[in-house]
Computed example of a mutant assay.
Amino acid sequence: MHAATEHEQAGIWAALADLSDPEIPVVSLSELGILREVRWGVDGTPEVVITPTYSGCPAMGQIEDDVRAALANAGITARVVTQLAPAWTTDWMSGVAREKLRAYGIAPPQCGSTANAGTNVLKFSRQALQRETVPCPQCGSTHTTETSPFGSTACKAMYRCLNCLEPFDYFKPY
């Protein structure tokens, strides 16, 4: 079995560094936490592990193709492995990703934190069932309302700011 050197790992991560999410091109797959791990398979072949934002994400085929193409362009032979467990969580998003979403006009998820990265905790309470306050990414107002639980993609909901009257997507927390 081949053990990955830090140099080999760094080369693979570098080849993937600029890959952006096909649905939100201002954020990289790494910043979103979709690129999970680089490991070596039992046959010694490098494996790039990806986890979809949700199991039915239609962008996963494109993401797999983009990862393969980036690796091929760097002269790296590797497999792409989709791993569903543990399930992706917005806690895996970097702070940079959250800020890029906001600057792009998408309200980032309001709950979760990078301090809890890698953990999924379900909370059932009266408070959890209440609608959360989502700040407008345009003007910062918290005077917003959900117009649809479904946005431009399944991982987002549609909101409208009642101050600046702009509609915007909200990246739902998972």
Rank of each mutant, 00 (worst) to 15 (best):
S30E: 11
I34C: 10
V38C: 07
W40K: 06
G41F: 06
T45F: 04
I50Q: 03
P52K: 03
T53Y: 06
A59S: 09
A59N: 00
Q62P: 00
I63R: 05
E64N: 13
D65C: 06
D66S: 13
V67K: 00
A70P: 07
A78Y: 10
Q83I: 08
Q83L: 12
L84I: 02
A87Y: 02
W88L: 01
T89I: 02
T89K: 01
T90N: 09
D91R: 13
W92G: 14
M93N: 11
S94Q: 04
V96L: 14
A97S: 14
R98M: 13
E99G: 02
L101N: 02
L101K: 01
L101E: 08
A103R: 15
P108Q: 06
P108N: 04
P109W: 04
G112Y: 01
S113M: 08
S113D: 14
N116D: 05
N116A: 06
T119E: 09
T119S: 04
N120M: 08
F124A: 10
F124G: 06
R126W: 09
Q127W: 01
R131D: 11
R131Q: 13
E132H: 10
T133Q: 13
T133E: 10
P137N: 05
P137K: 01
G140V: 03
T142D: 08
E146N: 00
T147E: 01
S148N: 09
P149Q: 13
P149M: 11
G151E: 06
S152M: 07
S152E: 07
T153Q: 09
A154K: 05
L162K: 02
N163R: 05
C164E: 10
C164K: 12
E166H: 00
E166I: 05
D169Y: 10
F171N: 06
